[in-house]
Structure formats: C-alpha cells, structure tokens
C-alpha cells in the first residue's frame, strides 16, 4: 500500500459523487419536479396572464418570462441545496462527520458542496430549457448554452447560501433568507419585468442583486445578442462566487474542525 493521499480533484469528485448517488437514488421524486414546475408555470402564463400582456421589452411576454425562469430555477435549487440540505447534513444527520473521518478535508467537502449545487443549477436550467423548446417559445440556437448559465448561477447562489448557512444555528432562520432575499430577487431582477421599469432610486439596488446579472447573461444566449457591458455581468457573477465561497468555507471550516 502506498502512502499517496488521493489527489485534490479525486477528493472533490468523491464528494460530488456522494451527492450524485443520493440524488439519483430517487429519480422519480427528484428528477420529475424540475420539469413539471416550469411546465405548470408556463401553462399558467400562456393560458391566463399572457392574454393581458402581449409584449415586454420588445419580446412576447411568455418569452421574456420563460428565459428568466431558466436562471431562477437554478437559483432556487442551489439555494435550497446549500441552506436546508447542507444544514441537515451538518447538524442532524452528521453526514459530514462521517465524511471527515475519510481522507477528505473540510475545504474539499465544502468545495464539493458548491460544485454539486452548481451541477444542480445546470440540470434545472436544462429541464426548463427542454420545456421551453417543447413549447416552441425560443428557437434552438445559442440558447443551447443556457445550462452553462444555470451552472454559473448555481455556483454563485451556492456560495452565497453557504455563507448564510455559516451563520445559522437554527434551521428556521433560513426562512428569512428565502422570503427576505430570494423572493424579492425573483421579482426585482428583471425576471418578471425589466428593471428599467423600477423607480429610479431602486434601480441601483437591482444592480446589486446577483440574479440581475444571471438574467442578462441568459437572455444574451437566448435572444441572442451581445453588448460589451455583458462582460461586467459575467465578472460580477464570478467575483460574488469567489468572495462568498471563500468566506463561507473559511467560516464553516471552523465549525467542522474544532
């Protein structure tokens, strides 16, 4: 037996693999809702609300909303994964304690956690995309890249959520994060209506919301169009992910390794 510890990528992958195995163990109840949810949402809009609103920001309303859903689904799944699920693994099931008895460091474990949530973002965006294509809402083109935007969105919200989790001692406190942060973001980040329609003083606030930048990136590949300011959106997403990811790992590591 050699003394070579497993290489970094193998360690991260093993954490990711564990989550993947748990997730795919229950394919029906885990794999179906990501398809059903956009289906119900778009059916509702198409049959009802769509009749009252024809157009938004120069495109059919259903197209405007559907392209936004491509990233909100990624946001929600990553946020749930890195709040409630992470907390349960940390505090109730003690899954992390079991994993840390193996040759995995706390940092490996947390990086794996973020990557897993990012992968779920990829998958959830993909599911929405399939539904959108099947409704014929947008043409198959560059929009094939949307799962990648879902991945970026997932990673970003995983990092933010993990940072929030590092402060939480009671699982009910996540309610504040969900209703106080994610819900406003859903409405004021250009998913439901363009942020240009917000009152002037609120527009800078919308620019702070990470989701605003994901929404711009996803419309870029769906429409498709390009303008240089989109690079800033991409940079913003990467920076938020790195900063919050770093802080979250720094803080949670101290909770895992005493």
């Amino acid at each position: 037996m050699n003394n070579n510890k497993p290489p970094y990528l193998a360690r991260i992958y093993s954490v990711w693999y564990r989550h993947m195995l748990v997730y795919t163990r229950d394919l029906v109840s885990n794999g179906l809702p990501p398809f059903l949810e956009p289906l119900i949402f778009l059916a509702g809009i198409g049959l009802g609300l769509g009749k009252y609103i024809d157009e938004m920001a120069g495109m059919p309303y259903i197209q405007f909303l559907a392209t936004g859903l491509l990233v909100t689904s990624a946001m929600y799944t990553a946020a749930f994964e890195c709040t409630y699920s992470t907390f349960i693994r940390l505090e109730f099931d003690k899954v992390y304690d079991g994993m840390l008895a193996a040759p995995i460091t706390a940092t490996d474990l947390l990086v794996g956690e973020i990557l897993w949530a990012g992968s779920k973002g990829f998958f959830f965006s993909f599911c929405v995309l399939v539904i959108i294509y099947s409704f014929g809402i947008i043409p198959i083109s560059l929009s094939l890249l949307t799962p990648l935007i879902g991945l970026i969105t997932g990673l970003m919200f995983a990092a933010i959520s993990l940072f929030v989790t590092s402060y939480v001692k009671n699982i009910n406190h996540f309610n504040f994060f969900m209703t106080g942060f994610l819900s406003p973001m859903f409405f004021f980040s250009g998913v439901v209506f363009p942020i240009q329609d917000l009152p002037g003083i609120l527009q800078p606030v919308a620019e702070i919301f990470p989701l605003t930048h994901s929404v711009r990136l996803v419309r870029m590949v769906c429409i498709p169009y390009f303008e240089p300011s989109l690079l800033l959106d991409a940079v913003y997403c990467v920076l938020i992910t790195l900063i919050f990811g770093y802080l979250a790992i720094y803080r949670l590591r101290r909770r895992l390794i005493q």
Binding site: V22, V95, D97, G98, A102, P103, I104
Partner: peptide, 14 residues
C-alpha cells in the same frame, strides 16, 4: 486518514 480507519461515536452512516 489515508492509512487509518475511524469509527466515530455516532454511526453517521448515509
């Protein structure tokens, strides 16, 4: 840890 096995106090199986 690569050369050890640990049986923690709680079972913490998946």
């Amino acid at each position: 840890k690569y050369q050890s096995g640990v049986v923690p106090q709680d079972n913490n199986l998946d």
